[in-house]
Amino acid sequence: MHPPKALLLACVLAVAGTACHAGNLPPIKPVAHVDLPRFMGRWYVIACIPTRFEKHAYNAVETYTLQTDGTIDTRFHFRDGAFDKPLKTIRSTGFVTAGSSNAVWGVQVLWPLKAQYVVAWLNDDYSQTIVARDARDYTWIMARTPTIPQADYDALIARVQTLGYSMRDIRKVPQAWLESGN
């Protein structure tokens, strides 16, 4: 099966954008260490500067599964445009960058391209995180729960801004869950 041309083009542009969008900003500093087994599992996307595919995502969830070879199976589930739209899934593979204490990955949707993934902030109990990129083109604020207190949200948005991101493109992701799931 061949990938859609739009997906291939978006991946090429994302990788190319890494070199030109960051300007004079220093690289994103990753957290000191990520305990990969503890980081695995379900993360609700609370807010993001979205990729082209998630601009209208509802109930966005990223799920990580550590594989025996050390790679990370990644599944991004969302509904495009409304809570009642069909569920969409984007699969990718994460490759931990050697020497990064598990805090920097290359994420591959299409071979051979890998997009940068930096765990830029992670709270001690692994319930909230910020994923960033040196290009400052995309970022994700994620939590283990579909909603977080407003004070936490405000603090996380402030952290994203201190990383050098423009706040004009931040989107709070609508999350509404029933007991039965998505």
Rank of each mutant, 00 (worst) to 15 (best):
L66Y: 07
S101Y: 01
L163Y: 13
L25V: 07
A10I: 05
A47N: 06
D154R: 10
V45M: 03
G94N: 08
L163N: 09
C11M: 13
T51H: 09
Y58S: 06
E62T: 11
K88R: 14
K172M: 02
A103E: 01
H56F: 13
L9K: 04
P112R: 14
L122F: 06
D80I: 08
F95M: 05
R159I: 07
D73R: 12
S180G: 05
I90M: 11
M167V: 13
T68W: 04
T63W: 00
F53C: 00
N182L: 12
F78W: 14
Y117S: 08
S101Q: 13
W177S: 02
N24F: 13
A120E: 04
L178D: 14
N59V: 11
S100V: 04
Q128L: 06
D154H: 07
I141S: 08
Q67L: 13
A32T: 14
T63Y: 06
D169R: 15
R159W: 02
W121D: 13
R79H: 15
T71F: 03
E54M: 05
D125H: 10
V173Q: 04
P149D: 10
V160E: 01
D124N: 14
A16F: 14
R159Q: 11
T93K: 12
T145M: 02
H33T: 07
G106I: 07
V31I: 10
D84V: 00
Q175P: 02
L156N: 05
I157E: 07
S100M: 05
H2Y: 09
W121Y: 15
L110I: 15
G70F: 08
M167L: 15
G17N: 10
K114W: 01
W121F: 13
A155N: 11
W43M: 08
L156F: 09
N123L: 03
L110N: 09
V109P: 01
E179A: 14
W43Q: 03
S166C: 03
P174A: 04
P4A: 10
G106F: 02
I141M: 14
D169L: 14
Q175H: 09
P149F: 06
K5Q: 13
P26F: 12
H21Y: 12
R91P: 00
V160T: 12
K5V: 15
W111G: 04
L87N: 01
A47V: 00
Y138P: 01
M40P: 02
V131S: 09
F39I: 12
I148T: 01
I170K: 10
G17I: 11
P27K: 04
P174D: 03
R159N: 01
T63S: 14
Y165Q: 10
G181C: 08
D73Q: 14
S101R: 13
V34N: 10
T18Q: 15
T71W: 03
I46H: 03
I130D: 03
I46V: 12
K114P: 01
D73V: 00
L122D: 05
W121L: 06
V96L: 07
P27I: 07
G23F: 09
L66G: 06
D35G: 10
H77F: 12
K114C: 09
Y165M: 06
D154K: 11
M142V: 15
L66V: 06
K29S: 15
I157H: 06
A6E: 13
G181N: 07
T147R: 03
S180V: 14
K88F: 02
R168K: 15
P86H: 09
S100F: 03
I28N: 07
Q161N: 11
